[in-house]
Design a protein around this nucleic acid. Structure first.
Lengths: 191, 191
DNA sequence: CGCGTAATTGAAAAGTATCAACACTGGTGG
DNA sequence: CCACCAGTGTTGATACTTTTCAATTACGCG
């Protein structure tokens, strides 16, 4: 559920250390800070050095649907700079967080000139596609309790790390339903 | 809903014409033919020359959840050869279909040696990521009737082109619920 | 015509959301 | 030290949405 990409973060960390230019910068945030806001333009790709962030889409009726929780090495903002358009989602920190920030122009230059970087980004995109495919299928095909159990399996520290609101947002349900599912599972000693 | 990628199919068509080697082949199918089967290994990337296919995940309880309908220029099978693992979904033709088939090895060589191809694939992946993100958020946040209306807006020939079962599979609902939504919308002259 | 596949419908059961009230927690300032 | 507040979490009752199950009809084709 919270994926990480060690290979990518290591690679970018090395780039950052040996940089001759300032095309990569490092930036730190506290919890609950907005990094990308849905509907605005961003000119950067971001890679998480440490911490956890959530990526969510807000819809007209005011609810947020959480796409993913990003962990170490996860990349975001790349879709927007590829399409050169406003962001279709927001990204907000959950824990303290440090990230590498790469200018769009530099990101494209790296893609062209650095085969290893190119291959890491391709791999990261492919992983995202698969993750989203499997997640949507599972979510849609199972009831809340099943989805929740799966989540806890994948990420046992769930309740200690992620606020209930966000868990509900990730599952695409209301908090009330989440609570009912938790209670029901506990009553049956499945949680 | 049925996306197309003219740029990619044109590019691959040109590669196919000028090929010195046989690394790209063309293949034709009738309706309801399985091209990729979930759980099996495939060693090719496929790009649709013409026709429509569906990509779906089957889950243990026997229902299929449809990820996407692929139109002209859409690529599939690329995720699996990147990860070098069994397919996590099935792909099956809906209409008559012709596709270009590229061996994994050749696909990687193209990515490395042909910057234009590399960029087209990156773009295709990014488009998939965004498509899936927006779709899942919308699906999860709205009721069936809203989802259906949106679908028909995006693709007016929906009912003439796609069987009801597949529409239901795409929305992640039962046929019964789909029928109820259609009837209710018709009664209110919204369809 | 007869068969298999696809589409339609009703009634009941299950699942989920909505609304509204209440409890818990960790600050903050008097 | 206490009162208050905001944010977060909890719970019940009710209404609504969707599935399940089962029966029936429509359609294309050998």
């Amino acid at each position: 559920m919270i994926r990480i990409n060690k290979e990518l973060v290591d690679f970018v960390a090395r780039l950052y250390r040996v940089k001759t230019d300032d095309f990569i910068s490092e930036q730190a945030f506290g919890p609950k800070k907005v990094i990308i806001e849905q509907g605005t333009k961003s000119r950067f790709a971001y890679i998480i050095k440490s911490g956890i962030a959530k990526c969510y889409l807000s819809n007209e009726n005011g609810t947020d649907f959480i796409q993913e929780f990003f962990g170490e090495g996860e990349i975001f903002g790349e879709v927007e700079i590829f399409n050169n358009e406003e962001s279709f989602c927001s990204v907000e920190t959950i824990t303290d967080l440090v990230l590498y920030k790469i200018r769009a122009q530099s990101f494209f230059r790296l893609l062209e000139e650095n085969p290893k970087f190119n291959s890491l980004i391709l791999k990261a995109l492919v992983t995202k596609v698969k993750y989203k495919a499997v997640r949507h299928a599972f979510n849609q095909s199972n009831r809340i309790e099943t989805n929740l159990l799966r989540l806890v399996e994948q990420f046992p520290e769930l309740f200690e790390t992620i606020p209930k609101q966000d868990i509900a947002g990730y599952l695409g349900i209301t908090e009330r339903s989440l609570n009912r599912a938790i209670k029901s599972l506990k009553d049956r000693r499945r949680l």
